[in-house]
Design a protein around this nucleic acid. Structure first.
Length: 469
RNA sequence: CGGGAAGUAGCGCAGCUUGGUUAGCGUGCCUGGUUUGGGACCAGGAGGUCGCGGGUUCGAAUCCCGCCUUCCCGACCA
């Protein structure tokens, strides 16, 4: 009966633990081609929840969904010099199709700035057409040499927003709005994965961007994961694709564009930000199943009670699944723990005799009894408590793992199991090279008060450095 | 792409050094029964191109060559 660990403990081998969770929680499998991924139903359900939460926020920010093609003429890529240079090593290119060599090779999109830029040029005539706020949900292909499920793959799913504006300030303000009101809000309030928001140093900037913003979250092993990214392109893409508009004064002027994305990498971040040795821990707001009602015994009275409870909870807006009670209790509980379902409502003959049920939290492991009549009101409250406890736990973990330092040597030391925060002036130039030599990178730049700078030229910036996925 | 390790049943592994009949174990799966409040037990059973291709040999999971895939460390990377 003694329960032995089903997963490799995090402290033994964190990457192995991650792979065990992905496999045993039935999230994903490797595809037959290197770097490709099969997302299994439970993993995809998590992604769908993410999509729904992000999509709602994107629409609230005013952007509209559209769809652009997977195939892009190679010539489009050559139009923006830095962009093509940055992406060419990762491109998959179709040169043969329909039984013959193609006159012009076709690129499988690694991102869609180029095609969308072409259509922005066509659709934008006057300042009245601005801002143009687009988003698309799609797959992209970037040939990866070292793939990891969810975290980095040759093909992945994401959302990419693309906008065009009449002024630098408007573009910049909108990018900031997306970064805060869509991404940071989602990370904080849904995933409970607090991030460091900031701008990327020039060395880490998106090819073709004048500014890239990031949200860097701290994983349980202290490494950083870039959760999302937002870019300002200035007029770089507008120049390359002739995205002009006629101003109120009748002048032809170049637009300012932005793009921003969040991908299935978020699933990997979710796993590594909250999971423990027993498996996944899902915050209630993202969990596809928030409550599993477990029949402790495979008996008719127990099942009836479980179904009744489940119906009540569903009516209250809770996402519920019923475990019918086949197989041993311990085995089933362990399986639900691996899957990270936030709450287990356990119904057995003993409970029913006393008109109560046993409720177990996944995050703390604690169990307590609730009267049957109280469940419908108590469960939603309990779910919200778990949500905020997970956020609090993640916040304190982030702070524990972050150390203020004043030298590169101390930064390297701190980066062994977390983040170092230090003056950007100490790092810029040679210092960054020293860090990089030890696989430590500058994750983002912030102002002294932690806010997002508008450019890396600002005085007195600080930076967060760490190892990363 | 460089360095290292590995690929044998769904998963985890042994066998390989020193080639030799029907390729094993744990777990999972199926059937029946007993069970069921923290990975249950007994009995029976199904499941394998030994990663792929080629070579050596009378004979290859085992030896040799090439390729593919996975993992780790780098390089690279919104």
């Amino acid at each position: 009966m003694a329960s032995q660990s089903v997963l490799t403990p995090q402290s033994t081998d964190f990457p192995r633990w991650y792979q065990d969770v992905v496999a045993k929680a039935e999230l994903a499998d490797n595809g037959p081609v290197r770097g490709t991924m099969v997302i299994r139903p439970y993993g995809y359900a998590i992604w769908e929840r993410m999509q729904s939460e992000i999509d709602t926020r994107i629409k609230a920010a005013g952007a509209k969904n559209a769809y652009f093609p997977l195939f892009i003429p190679e010539s489009y890529f050559s139009k923006e010099a830095e962009h093509v240079e940055g992406f060419s090593p990762e491109l998959a290119v179709v040169t043969f199709a329909g039984g013959e060599e193609l006159a012009e090779p076709i690129v499988v999109r690694p991102t869609s700035e180029t095609v969308i830029g072409g259509f922005m040029a066509k659709w934008i005539q006057s300042y009245r057409d601005l801002p143009l706020l687009l988003n698309q949900w799609s797959n992209v292909v970037r040939w990866e040499l070292r793939p990891r499920l969810f975290l980095r793959g040759t093909e992945f799913l994401w959302q990419e927003g693309h906008t065009a504006h009449a002024s630098y300030d408007d573009a910049s303000a909108y990018a900031l709005k997306i970064h805060r009101e869509v991404y940071d809000d989602f990370l904080l309030n849904v995933l409970a994965t607090p991030s460091y928001l900031g701008i990327k140093p020039p060395s880490e900037r998106f090819p073709g961007a004048v500014n890239s913003m990031a949200a860097e979250s701290v994983m349980r092993d202290g490494k950083a994961l870039q959760m999302v990214t937002t870019h300002e392109f200035g007029q770089n893409f507008a120049k390359a694709f002739d995205i002009y508009f006629q101003s109120e004064e009748g002048q032809a002027e170049l637009c300012y564009t932005t793009s921003w994305g969040a991908s299935t990498r978020l699933v990997g971040g979710l796993i590594m930000a909250h999971g423990d040795d027993a498996g996944l821990i899902l915050p209630p707001r993202i969990a596809p199943t928030q409550v599993v009602v477990i029949c402790v015994r495979d008996e008719p009275e127990v099942k009836e009670a479980a179904d009744r409870i489940a119906r009540e909870l569903v009516d209250g807006g809770v996402r519920v699944e019923v475990d019918q009670g086949r197989g041993s209790y311990g085995r089933r509980v362990t399986d639900w723990e691996i899957k990270g379902v936030p709450l287990r409502v356990e119904v057995g003959p003993r409970d029913l005799a006393e008109g109560q049920v046993t409720v177990a939290r996944r995050d703390t492991g604690s169990k307590s009894s609730y009267a049957l009549e109280a469940l419908a009101t108590e469960v939603p409250t309990l779910l919200e408590t778990i949500q905020s406890d997970l956020l609090a736990r993640a916040l304190s973990h982030r702070d524990e793992r972050t150390h203020d330092v004043t030298t590169i040597a101390d930064a390297l030391d701190a980066a062994k199991d977390g983040f170092a925060r230090l003056a950007w002036d100490l790092v810029v130039g040679e210092g960054e090279g020293e860090l990089n030599a030890q696989a430590v990178s500058v994750r983002c730049l912030q102002r002294q008060d932690g806010s997002i700078p508008r450019s890396d030229e600002e005085d007195d910036l600080i930076c967060l450095v760490s190892k990363s996925y």
